[in-house]
Simulated assay, not measured.
Amino acid sequence: MNKRMKLGSIAVALPLLIIGFKTETMKVLLSGNIESLQNLSHGSLWLLLFFTLLLMTIQNLFTIIPLILLISINVSLFGFTGGYIWSWLISIAGATVSFLITRYWFQDFFAKYVNSQWESKIEENGFGVVFIGRVMPFMPTSVVNIAAAISSIRFMKFFYATVLGNMIYFFILSSISLGILSIPWENSLYVVSAAFALLVIMVIRKRRKKAGRTPMTPPE
C-alpha cells in the first residue's frame, strides 16, 4: 500500500474512531460493568460475543482496558471453561489485528518510538521474545504487538508465540478471576510460567541447532 492510500485510510478511520469512543455504547463497554453489558446486548449471545471481541481488540490496540477485567467479564458471562477459551481466541484475533494494522499502516510511525534494543531482540529471537512477553507481560499487550510488527519477525512466528503464550497466561488470569487461585499465588505462577517459557525456547533452539548440523544426504 502506497503512502497516499495509507494517509487517506487513516484520515477516514481516525475521525470515526474518535466519534466511536465518545458514543454511549462505547462508554458502557469500556466501563466493564457486566450488568450494563448484558442490558446492552438485550440477552443476545451473539452481541455479547461481538462486544467482548471488540473490547479485546481495543485492548490489543491501545491497552486502555485491564486484561484481567476482560477475562473476568468473559468468565462471569460464559463460565470458567467457556470464558477462558473465548478470551484466548479473541486475544489471538485482537493481537493479529494489531500486528497487521501496525505493519501495513503505521510501521514507519511507530518505529520512531519503540526501543531499538527491544526491536533487535525480537529480530534475533522473535518467537522467544514474543512468547515471554505474553507469559510475563512486563510490557503492555499493545507494545508487544507493535514492537513485533515493526521488526522483521514473520507473522506466523508472532502468531504461534501468541497462541501458546496466551494459552498459558490466560489460564492463570481466568483461575484468579474465578477465585480458583488466590492473588498471593500470582507471583509464583509467573515464575513457573517464565520457567516453562524458557524451557520451550531451549527445546526449540536445540532442535534448530540439531537440524542445522544434520548432514545432507548426497543424491544417488
Rank of each mutant, 00 (worst) to 15 (best):
S151Y: 02
H42R: 14
S87C: 12
F171N: 01
I73Y: 03
A148Y: 01
M136T: 14
E123W: 04
L53I: 13
I153N: 01
F159A: 04
P137L: 08
L189E: 10
I153A: 00
L49A: 15
L14C: 09
W185I: 03
E124P: 08
F21S: 02
G133K: 02
G128K: 04
K206H: 15
A194Y: 13
F109H: 08
S44Q: 08
Q38P: 12
S182C: 10
G79Y: 13
L14V: 14
L17W: 08
P137N: 10
F62W: 00
E186N: 11
Q59W: 10
A95R: 08
M1W: 03
W46A: 12
S174W: 06
L45Q: 02
I34Q: 05
Y104W: 06
L178C: 05
L40H: 01
M136C: 13
S36N: 08
M202V: 13
T214S: 11
V192I: 15
W46G: 07
S91E: 06
T81W: 11
I68K: 00
A195S: 15
F155M: 07
Q117K: 14
P219D: 14
I183M: 10
K112S: 06
N74Q: 15
Q107L: 10
L7Q: 02
M216Y: 15
V114N: 01
G43C: 07
Y84S: 11
P218Y: 09
L67S: 12
A147N: 04
P215G: 03
G133C: 12
L49V: 14
Y84V: 15
F110T: 01
T96M: 08
L164S: 12
N115Q: 11
M136G: 11
T96P: 00
Y190K: 14
S31T: 04
V97P: 00
F155E: 03
F131C: 12
L14H: 07
F99R: 01
S76F: 14
K210S: 13
F99V: 01
P66H: 02
G32H: 01
P184C: 01
P140M: 09
I19V: 14
A161I: 08
Q117M: 12
G126K: 02
I34E: 02
S98H: 05
T141G: 13
D108K: 12
S116Q: 09
G43W: 06
N125T: 06
K206I: 14
I58P: 04
L49H: 08
L178N: 05
P140G: 07
L189D: 09
F106D: 00
M202S: 12
A149E: 01
H42A: 09
L45M: 09
M139D: 08
F50T: 10
S31K: 01
S36V: 13
L48I: 07
G32V: 08
V203Q: 02
S142E: 07
F80K: 03
F78L: 09
E24M: 05
F138Y: 06
S31R: 04
I85R: 02
R134Y: 09
V163E: 07
F127I: 11
M156F: 15
E186S: 06
G32T: 03
L164F: 15
N60D: 06
V12R: 06
L178G: 05
K3Y: 09
F138N: 05
E119W: 12
R207V: 14
L49P: 07
S44F: 06
S188E: 11
I153R: 04
G82N: 12
L89R: 08
S41R: 00
M139A: 15
K6E: 02
